[in-house]
Design a protein around this nucleic acid. Structure first.
Lengths: 145, 145
DNA sequence: CTTATAATTTAGCCTAGGCTCAGTTTATAC
DNA sequence: GTATAAACTGAGCCTAGGCTAAATTATAAG
């Protein structure tokens, strides 16, 4: 039961929520470039139809999001053609994949089932700070010995 | 380097992203009721001005969100008066607080600093499944021995 | 080589959640 | 008890990210 002292300072609490909102803004971008990178590796190219079906959205929704990614310099694509990552997009995709893998392997390491780890790492990866990520890596290393 | 087999089935991958999007929809609601509950405990009442400053948004933004929470049955409030949680709101606030505390204590238990734990638990709490939460609790118990 | 199908885009609509600026209501201070 | 300040609301705008329906372009089949 919290008492008077139990509330953090308003501006600190506000800063945290603001930070979470910032993270949300980049989530879609990260998820899309990560997926596009996967599709290129595995299929040789990334097509909108696959992006849409794997993101679980309709094609017009994927199309609109991809237009934003292009506007912001993460991808390149000609109308009706397949999608390419820019250097900026590749960098973000690599960072996202690494982070995703660390969170996933960490969950496995502490005993979470493969299924839940797959599901939870998708949402968690965007909200883990560098510091926490380092701790996750340490736990993974300890467990693999 | 992924090969042909490395992509999950499209419908499974889609289901995960859809699930994360669902979680996002309830995030704001959970954060607001949790905060309102805290304010009532500590201050005796929850006022919009405090909700806004602690969420890090302007008063009109908080006002609009609170209108939605009222529409959806989580809070009650008369115009220009303070905010009360409905039973549904209280239930959600309790669940959110519990979940938040588990994630926070788990991060501390594995060696994350207090500051980072405070920050990361805010974003992570909405993306941790029941199964993973149980594992987190187990780790907390092991560490407190 | 034409026709049918599949992929992509465009247009238009919706909700959530940000914002500013202006107005109204409530509380506070003389 | 009235003036000022603080709290709250309302109007209107923006972006992101969902959707459907319809048009366009590219591809495949005969």
């Amino acid at each position: 039961m919290p008492d008077e002292d139990s509330l953090p300072e308003a501006h600190e609490q506000a800063a945290r929520f603001t930070q979470v909102r910032e993270a949300h803004k980049t989530e879609a971008t990260e998820d899309y470039v990560e997926l596009i990178d996967d599709l290129i590796r595995v299929n040789g190219e990334a097509r909108l139809v696959d992006v849409a079906s794997r993101m679980g959205v309709t094609q017009p929704t994927a199309s609109k999001t991809l237009a934003r990614l292009q506007r912001d310099g993460f991808i390149n694509s000609e109308p009706y053609r397949s999608i390419f990552l820019t250097d900026q997009g590749k960098t973000l995709a690599n960072e996202s994949r690494l982070r995703h893998e660390i969170v996933f392997n960490f969950l496995l390491a502490i005993g979470v089932s493969r299924d839940a780890a797959v599901r939870d790492s998708e949402g968690m990866e965007h909200h883990v700070s560098e510091e926490t990520l380092k701790v996750f890596e340490k736990v993974i290393r300890q467990n693999s010995k």
